[in-house]
Design a protein around this nucleic acid. Structure first.
Length: 507
RNA sequence: GGCCCGGUCGUCUAGUGGUUAGGAUGCCGCCCUUUCAAGGCGGAGGUCGCGGGUUCAAGUCCCGUCCGGGCUACCA
């Protein structure tokens, strides 16, 4: 499911919850050629992950069942209602062939006229002509007879009054030749039958709104309130696509984004509670959501800001909850395959990912570590909580805790192992660690012997002591505070790593 | 081409006739510090697309104009 559709679904959910209304899931599968069970499955999973709940729908039933339009078609609901329109003269049968319509469009384009079906021969055909065509077994569609020489007005909740010269809106197909209704018809009939109060959808629907509005009029039904939400664009102002990074919501899950962070971020594209409020829980989102905060202008997907939100949410989690979230993340069946696929994807750089294969490997390591020694993994995770952006970052960040021999950054070795005191330092540290008998060591004891070495060697700065030890222990020049990390590693691991480091300086 | 929607720092936005146009992100700097982050503080960044009006006063109201986007299917 595309993030744009997800945002719309989120708005509908928030609005329904805020107003105490009902959020209904309806499957609009009237186009056989377009429908895919995989897409539906993906949508269901996305909505579920996103915490977007429904009060009625195909999965839970409800007073207006069925909620799948193909099922409703089988029940004859659309045929029943289109008969009313045929009967009251606001719809008509059109027997044009595809070739005839193509020809008509070509002529319209050549003469720079507006394209579309504004009547042809069938709009005002006599009963005899229709009967003759039917007798000849010609296939037909049923079109809505948009009135001419008048103005169609809708009142949009975001944009206010929008009006069209009815001569510029063409006669839409209501029922296709295969008997299936179009979106135009099925959605409006269902909206009425299901007592929908607000049609919230993307702004790309504005141009069809007069058709929909008139359809309600043709039945003599009350029109719902139209709410056309702005679209989400890419950085270049174009429609958000794969070129801009990930567009699928579930990809963000695989990337290691927290649902709440994503929801918070997405809710703020095209909507604002007013004032400076930005970081909001789901509960606050519901509390503040209001149509008046909706924006008419399109928004841009700002990946950097999403990342900022995610960092905020990771840091706000209490460590136990974080551990659970990480476990869920690495256990999620999509996660590892996603990173494998990303390793072969040239678009990966769009996501700021440089080595997906390595990240995948580190995530597997993390998963194994949590399973084999959860207490140790927990300590490692706590130390990295302050410095990651995504859940996936925990993989590479924590890896050195779990590797027997963490890979050494050659630049770090070159920089910090060259100094003459390093050999003595490593021996000193090993001796200090061997002196303890408990198999564990406190942060304070680590700090005290590191500082002691600096003092005894007349060093006024800790850097020349801390950095070589860090490199020896983690292979890297960055990471959590050294003393904290030492206490988590413990004497046994540290002695092994320091001993290995010695081979690197003598060699 | 036609119809429609939109236009406040790069980005998300606050703003509903009177504000030094506010916040957030990103960027830069400083502080903190054993590193990287996080956090704190500060900075740069906006002639409110442009041009006319209305008004004592316009980002806010009106008109025009430019630019961007959507639709223009027996798709949704």
């Amino acid at each position: 499911m595309h993030v744009g559709n997800f945002r719309d679904a989120l708005f509908k959910f928030l609005f329904a919850r805020h107003t105490g209304g009902t959020n209904i899931l309806r499957i609009e599968d009237t186009d056989r050629s377009r429908y895919s069970p995989e897409a539906e499955k993906d949508a269901i999973e996305t909505l579920k992950w996103g915490g977007i709940e429904f009060d009625e729908g195909p999965h839970i039933g409800g007073p207006y069942a069925p909620y799948r339009q193909s099922d409703r078609k089988e029940l004859g609901i659309y045929a029943e209602y289109v008969a009313i329109l045929l009967d009251n003269g606001t719809a008509y049968k059109a027997f044009d062939t595809t070739e005839e319509l193509d020809e008509m469009r070509k002529i319209q384009e050549a003469n720079k006229l507006q394209t579309g079906y504004y009547g042809g021969v069938w709009r005002d055909a006599t009963a005899e002509q229709v009967a003759a065509a039917e007798a000849a077994g010609k296939p037909c569609v049923i079109r809505l007879k948009i009135p001419r020489d008048t103005t169609i007005v809708i009142e949009d909740a975001i944009r206010g009054r929008i009006e069209w010269d009815s001569n510029t809106v063409d006669d839409p197909v209501l029922i296709k030749a295969d008997g299936m209704p179009t979106y135009h018809f099925a959605a409006m009939v269902d909206d009425h039958l299901m007592e929908i109060t607000h049609i919230m959808r993307g702004e790309e629907w504005i141009s069809s709104a007069p058709k929909h509005a008139f359809l309600f009029d043709a039945f003599g039904w009350q029109r719902p309130i139209f709410v056309h939400c702005p679209v989400i664009k890419g950085k270049d102002g174009k429609k958000l696509s794969k070129r801009h990074g990930a567009t699928s919501v579930l990809d963000y899950r695989s990337l290691g984004f927290l649902v709440d962070a994503l929801v918070n971020f997405v809710a703020l594209i095209g909507w604002s509670p007013g004032g400076d409020l930005e970081v909001m829980s789901r509960r606050q989102l519901i509390e503040h959501f209001d149509l008046s905060g909706l924006q008419p202008s399109p928004g841009v997907w700002d990946f950097d800001k999403l990342k900022w939100f995610n960092g905020q949410y990771i840091r706000a989690l209490d460590p136990e909850a974080l551990l659970g979230t990480i476990l869920e993340f690495v256990d999620e069946p999509d996660t590892l395959p996603f990173w494998s696929a990303l390793a072969d994807d040239p678009e990966a750089s769009q996501l700021g990912v440089s080595d997906a294969a390595a990240i995948r490997e580190s995530l597997e390591l993390l998963k194994a570590a949590i399973e084999s020694d959860p207490a140790y993994a927990f300590e490692a995770i706590k130390l990295e909580q302050e410095r990651v952006v995504t859940l996936a970052d925990f993989g590479p960040a924590c890896a050195f805790f779990f590797q027997d021999e963490p890979p050494m950054d050659p630049k770090a070795v070159e920089k910090w192992f060259a100094q003459p005191h390093v050999g003595r330092l490593l021996d000193f540290a090993i001796r200090e660690l061997q002196a303890g008998s408990e198999g564990t060591i406190s942060i304070e004891r680590c700090e005290s012997f590191i500082r002691r070495f600096a003092e005894e060697n007349g060093m006024d700065k800790l850097g020349p002591v801390v950095h070589p030890i860090r490199v020896a222990l983690t292979g890297k020049t960055f990471g959590p505070g050294l003393f904290e990390l030492m206490a988590v590693l413990g004497p046994v691991r540290m002695i092994r790593r320091l001993t290995r480091a010695k081979t690197l300086i003598s060699g």
